[in-house]
Simulated scan of single mutants.
Amino acid sequence: MTLLRLFPQGPTDSETALRMLVAHAIPGAEEADIPGRTYTRLLPHAGASVRVTVAFTEDHVAVDLPDEIPDPDGLAVPIRRWLDLDSDTTRIAGALAADPMIRPLVEHRPGIRLIGYPDEFEAVTATVVGQLVSLAAARTFMGRLVAAYGTPAAGLKALPAPQDLAVIPDAELKAAIGLTGARTRTLRAVAQKWADGFTLAHLTADEARRALLALPGIGPWTADYLTVRALQHPDTFAPGDLVACRALGSVTADQARTTAERWAPWRSYGLMHLWADAAYAAPGRGGTRAWKPDPDLTLLPEPTSSPCRAAIAPRR
């Protein structure tokens, strides 16, 4: 095997990064070993799918690659981008800690990174498939998609390309995955959009959000979530996210949005801190005891305030 050592800018909360990857791992496409601190998947490289194993150490990320692949160093840039290794977490933590409300979370996990996806179409597909269901159900649906249409390589399967997914009839796709008819149509619309050459890359967060909302079946929460997870924009937020609203004291979406404005220009990292404390902590280490929401945010919502949607809670 060929070993790449990737050193991040600033500290890294490797435990949260690994647990986030594990929580979303697709059966048949990804393998994870929490005790061994490794995560394995296929990545596109030089026209092929390469099996890559990422190991999180105290000060760097070690990447195992097959010896026979050409230009192994060429994978360093996409992996660094996927794992957000070039962001200065010291600077980000310092800025967020200026807000006393979120400071306890920042001090507990100063190396939070904006873990994304190696491929934006994969991010959008996984999010659409997982709308309005639990994370466990979303992984099951994605596992069925991979099993039915994935491309085998090195003992795993790569997700189908958008042009391949776009030509599958709705009835066949619905039967293979088990989605509702509406969700199947959204998935096909997304596949067709990306098959036509669309990409979120180089769009602003507002432009990306508008483009996503223009697709059938994609609403505000999905668009907001994808600006964080697919676009990896550092300063967006998902005010309708139930986990975030609960972490802030069971507030409304409007109140959550107002609070997050204090974290600019790193609102996405603030959201990651809320998610990490609620969903990605190791057993016995979640729910930071020093963390308390702003008491001003626990007031009953104004009649014009929009509530968070309970149905979207599981999708972190």
Rank of each mutant, 00 (worst) to 15 (best):
A201V: 06
T53H: 04
D73E: 15
V22R: 07
A158T: 03
T38P: 10
T2H: 12
Q232G: 08
R309H: 05
L159N: 00
D296C: 00
F237G: 00
G270D: 07
L114A: 10
P160H: 04
E172C: 02
T199A: 12
W275M: 09
L242A: 13
T127S: 15
V77G: 10
A264L: 06
A201Y: 01
P78Y: 04
A260V: 00
L274C: 09
E15N: 09
M142I: 00
I102T: 06
R103H: 09
T127E: 11
G181E: 14
T125N: 06
G249W: 01
P66L: 06
R41H: 09
E302T: 09
V77Y: 01
T89Y: 05
V50E: 03
P162I: 04
W263K: 03
H24Q: 14
G47A: 06
L42P: 07
G94P: 13
E30M: 13
A244T: 11
T90Y: 00
M272I: 01
T125F: 01
L213P: 10
T40M: 08
R144F: 01
A264R: 14
E58G: 13
A311M: 08
Q255L: 04
P72W: 01
Y149S: 06
L242C: 01
P110S: 11
I112Q: 14
P301E: 00
P293L: 04
L242V: 03
P152Q: 05
G217H: 09
D86T: 11
V106H: 02
H273T: 09
G249C: 07
A154H: 14
A278F: 03
A223M: 10
I69V: 13
L299H: 10
V52Q: 02
G155K: 06
A29W: 00
P295Y: 03
A278C: 03
A281W: 05
V167S: 13
A282Q: 13
R209K: 14
E302L: 14
K157A: 12
R19I: 06
T38D: 11
G217Q: 13
R267T: 05
V106R: 09
T57H: 13
L159S: 01
G10M: 07
R229V: 08
A223Y: 06
A230R: 08
A171L: 14
T204S: 15
T180V: 07
L42H: 10
Y39I: 03
D86M: 05
A247L: 07
T151D: 07
V50H: 02
